[in-house]
Design a protein around this nucleic acid. Structure first.
Lengths: 333, 333
DNA sequence: TTGTAAGCGTTATCAA
DNA sequence: TTGATAACGCTTACAA
């Protein structure tokens, strides 16, 4: 059942059918009704492919993330999909995993599907080695490209960021003020996002004129048990710390588990601050002080920026939203 | 830049370009290399719309869920996307929210985009009132339709289920054996999934010949604090219970928070069992005994069933995987 | 092994 | 207000 069939049945041309379908004003009321009636009776659905071919758009935005099961990503996907839908766009989701090769392939795929734009959920997505992000730059030459929580300095790439560096800097400063001199910074990877947080951590030490010992910066897998065990092993090595700031809530949970194992009191003997203010932060015990990066705002801003880019309006290359420290029970007042 | 441009540059016909692009064996090595070289140099990407128009498929599967931020859904989306990709399919994601009206619209939208099939993530998606699922039945007449963790008894709908009823029945039986006579069943909605779990709960009581008091079945919003407060209010009303089984981990976490508030010992005075075995179950304290519904297996099975349906192979209407009780620290041995 | 040309189902331009 | 028809870019049956 296609537009020709309908045109025959209705006794008008395909052009007129198309006009009715697209709400063109230049169709007489009588014709319109006649056509609508026929369409109704035939339960005909226009072929989106043919339509896309002519218009060269499918009204679809590609969303790339490493892992949709990660809580931050899961929330972002949810908000993005909702906002895009409001604007009449579908979301083609790509969970690339962590391999650069796969990320590149997914990007190629999205381009070949001729999505109207790509939104990259940048945390854990961008590589710290700049050259490894070249494929993103090259994609941006073809279609609008928005990065959430990340930025690559290239024309045609728009970054919607939250100020991770500043957030960690303030959180660290808070702990230093409380005379916690040995703070452990725990991260899971060398993503741009992690490195920004680390910078904030280091700056806070500089701000106070304190020297930061190298062994207080630690990396471990993104997993509760891995984080817990990592801290145990540090303790055995004799590395001491009175606080932990982690780049992810999940690592902070590991720190809480470690403290419980060792009988260390939280927050009195060990303060812990997580990042993301995810559901995990409310689930654990004691409830976790965590940095909220305002996912929802990031996503809403990303979509509205994207719409302006698509409309050829002028959009700032970088928009930075502030983060917020949510104080719960793993830090002292 | 289209196939004609490439064909001119390479000095061969568009048919040959197409053959090279699609890996047809009937192209000479020399021609193939020449064409590939030209394609490379021109950084040409085939137009997926034109291709889809001819083939009448975009190799895209629609995924519908209520809320991708829910941990079960987030995991399912991740696994589904990964498995579909392996089979060469993209995923068009729809997070519909909980309104029936919206669900219907999303389904219409997917159909008009001519996806090759739809996978519905059923938990919280299917309505308990059968008639409200009619739009799904009607969609199934047009394209293959797979429901994960849900089933509608209609030809052309395939259900990949985990045995929620049995799982809850066994978990309840375990508690009853431990002389916990008043078990509270806590659920967040009247979805088919919740109702199945409830049935298992009731059956376990029947199995033991015990009568279940109506006020031990409780509903509250899907939220830690809401669950906690709900239990507080029950206590005030004088409703007593020695165990909680919840239809979602998040409600179980609320129960743990309640116990902590009240100084009730878990698991000695109150046993708690969650559902989903999500990350939350490992994050809380004490760590939560929870029913694992094997999301990954569900998704892998769903995709492989779907591929068979697409190949017109014979596929059972219902596949049920067993669930598994993961014992942690909120139940006694 | 390669080329020609029809066909996929729309939309848009131009003419009536 | 309506119709005829080219155009969108690819695949494929058939011919060479």
């Amino acid at each position: 059942m296609n537009i020709y069939d309908i045109s025959k049945k209705a006794g008008v041309s395909t052009a007129t059918i198309s006009r009715v379908l697209n709400g063109s004003p230049s169709v007489s009321e009588a014709t319109r009704n006649k056509v609508l009636k026929v369409i109704e009776d035939s339960d005909y659905t226009p072929n989106a492919f043919a339509r896309s071919l002519g218009l060269d758009t499918m009204k679809t935005i590609g969303i790339m993330c490493t892992d949709s099961a990660d809580l931050f990503h899961a929330n972002a996907i949810n908000y993005l999909e909702r906002e895009l839908r409001k604007c009449g766009y579908d979301s083609l989701l790509c969970c690339t995993g962590y391999e650069l090769r796969d990320k590149k392939n997914y990007m190629k795929l999205l381009l070949s599907k001729r999505v109207d734009a790509v939104i990259v959920i940048g945390s854990n997505f961008l590589e710290a080695v700049d050259k490894n992000n070249d494929y993103i730059k090259s994609a941006a030459r073809q279609i609008p490209l928005i990065i959430i929580n990340g930025y690559i300095n290239t024309p045609d790439i728009y970054g919607i960021l939250c100020d991770e560096m500043q957030a960690v800097r303030q959180a660290t400063a808070l702990l230093l003020q409380q005379e916690k001199r040995n703070i452990l910074f725990l991260h899971a990877n060398k993503s741009l996002s992690s490195m920004n947080k680390l910078k904030g951590f280091q700056k806070a030490y500089e701000d106070c004129g304190l020297t930061l010992q190298g062994d207080l910066i630690q990396q471990c897998p993104l997993d509760i048990t891995a984080a817990k065990n990592h801290l145990h092993s540090l303790k055995i090595k004799g590395i001491t710390f009175q606080a932990v700031i982690s780049a992810e809530d999940i690592l902070a949970i590991g720190a809480l588990k470690y403290a419980r194992d060792e009988g260390i009191l939280v927050p009195e003997e060990l303060s812990v601050i997580g990042y993301n203010n995810s559901l995990l932060a409310e689930s654990c015990e004691p409830e976790l002080t965590s940095i909220d990066n305002h996912v929802e705002s990031l996503c809403i801003t990303a979509v509205s920026s994207l719409m302006r880019v698509l409309n050829k309006e002028n959009v700032p290359a970088v928009i930075t939203l502030s983060s917020e420290l949510i104080i719960r029970k793993t830090t002292i007042e």
